[in-house]
C-alpha cells in the first residue's frame, strides 16, 4: 500500500513540477478567463446598468453574476485539458515508462489526476482573486467552500479527460473535442446568462451538463444566488467525480500498447 501511495504522490509531484516550469501554459490558461471577465463582463455590465437589470440576475450586478461562472469555467478548462494531455505522454513515450512500472496503475493515474486537479484549482483561485477586484457582491467567506466545489469539479473533469485521452489516438480528435465539446458545455452551463431564460431544448442540455452544477454551486456560496439546492450541486458533482475516477483507473489498468 505504501508503494501505491509513493507512486501516487510522485506522479502528482511530477504534474506540479511541470506546471511550475511551463510558464507559457500558466499564462495562457489565466489570460483566457481574464479576457472573458474584462471584455465580455465589463462590456455587458454597462449594458445591464439599468434599474431592472438586476432582476434578470437574481438581484446581482452582472459582474458578480458572471465571475463565479468564469472561475468554474477556468477550472473546468484547465482540468479537462490537463487530463487530455495524457495524449502527449502517449505521443512522447513517457506513458510507456509508467505502464511498465510495477506500481498499481490506479495509483499512478490517480496521482496524475490529483496533480492536475490541484493545478486547475490554483488557476481558478487566481481568477477568483481577480474577480474580487471587479465584482462587488462576492462574499469572501464563500471562498473555502467554493474551493471544495472546484476541487471536485477538477477531479471529475481531469478523470474524463484522461479517459478520453486513453481512447483517442489522433491529434485531430483532440482538436474536435476541444471545439465541439468544451465550448458548448461552457455556454450551456449558466455561466454567462441565467438558465431560466434559455429555450427549453437548451435547458435540457444544461441540466445534464455537470458544469451547470458547479457554476450554480460556486455562485451560491459566493453570492447567495442559485438555481438549485447547493447540496444537490455537490451531490451531482461528487457522483460524476466518482464515476470518472473509477472509469479512468479501470481504463488505465487495462491499457496496453495495442
Amino acid at each position: 500500500m505504501s508503494e501505491a501511495l509513493d507512486a501516487l504522490i510522485v506522479m502528482a509531484y511530477r504534474q506540479l513540477k511541470r506546471f511550475r516550469r511551463g510558464r507559457a501554459r500558466v499564462v495562457s490558461s489565466i489570460v483566457n478567463p481574464i479576457i472573458w471577465i474584462v471584455f465580455f463582463g465589463l462590456g455587458w455590465s454597462n449594458v445591464f446598468n439599468f434599474p431592472m437589470a438586476r432582476m434578470i440576475f437574481g438581484g446581482l450586478d452582472y459582474l458578480s453574476f458572471l465571475t463565479p461562472g468564469v472561475v468554474a469555467m477556468s477550472v473546468f478548462t484547465a482540468s479537462f485539458i490537463g487530463g487530455i494531455t495524457v495524449i502527449w505522454d502517449k505521443q512522447f513515450g513517457f506513458l510507456k515508462e509508467v505502464l511498465v512500472a510495477p506500481a498499481p496503475r490506479w495509483a499512478t493515474i490517480l496521482g496524475r489526476i490529483i496533480g492536475d486537479s490541484v493545478i486547475a484549482v490554483i488557476q481558478g483561485l487566481i481568477i477568483l482573486g481577480l474577480s474580487f477586484l471587479v465584482a462587488h457582491s462576492l462574499n469572501p467567506w464563500g471562498v473555502p467552500v467554493s474551493i471544495l466545489y472546484m476541487l471536485i469539479l477538477s477531479l471529475a473533469f481531469t478523470g474524463v479527460g484522461v479517459s478520453l485521452a486513453l481512447r483517442i489516438t489522433s491529434m485531430e480528435a483532440f482538436q474536435m473535442i476541444i471545439s465541439f465539446l468544451m465550448l458548448p458545455l461552457v455556454f450551456l452551463s449558466g455561466a454567462f446568462y441565467p438558465l431560466k431564460y434559455m429555450p427549453d431544448w437548451m435547458k435540457i442540455i444544461a441540466y445534464v451538463n455537470p458544469l451547470t452544477y458547479t457554476v450554480d454551486g460556486i455562485r451560491y456560496w459566493l453570492t447567495g444566488v442559485s438555481s438549485f439546492n447547493p447540496y444537490l450541486d455537490l451531490a451531482v458533482l461528487s457522483g460524476l467525480a466518482a464515476i470518472a475516477l473509477v472509469v479512468a483507473a479501470k481504463l488505465f489498468s487495462r491499457a496496453t500498447l495495442d
Binding site: V10, M11, Y13, G93, K96, A101, A103
Partner: peptide, 26 residues
C-alpha cells in the same frame, strides 16, 4: 526496459527523471 522510442519526461531534469522512476518503483 529501454524502449526504442524515447520515453523520458523532457520537461524534467535528468535527476528528476530518475527520482520519479525510483519513487514509482518504491
Amino acid at each position: 526496459v529501454v524502449f526504442q522510442d524515447p520515453s523520458l519526461d523532457s520537461e524534467l531534469t535528468g535527476y528528476e527523471n530518475l527520482y520519479l522512476h525510483g519513487r514509482i518503483y518504491g
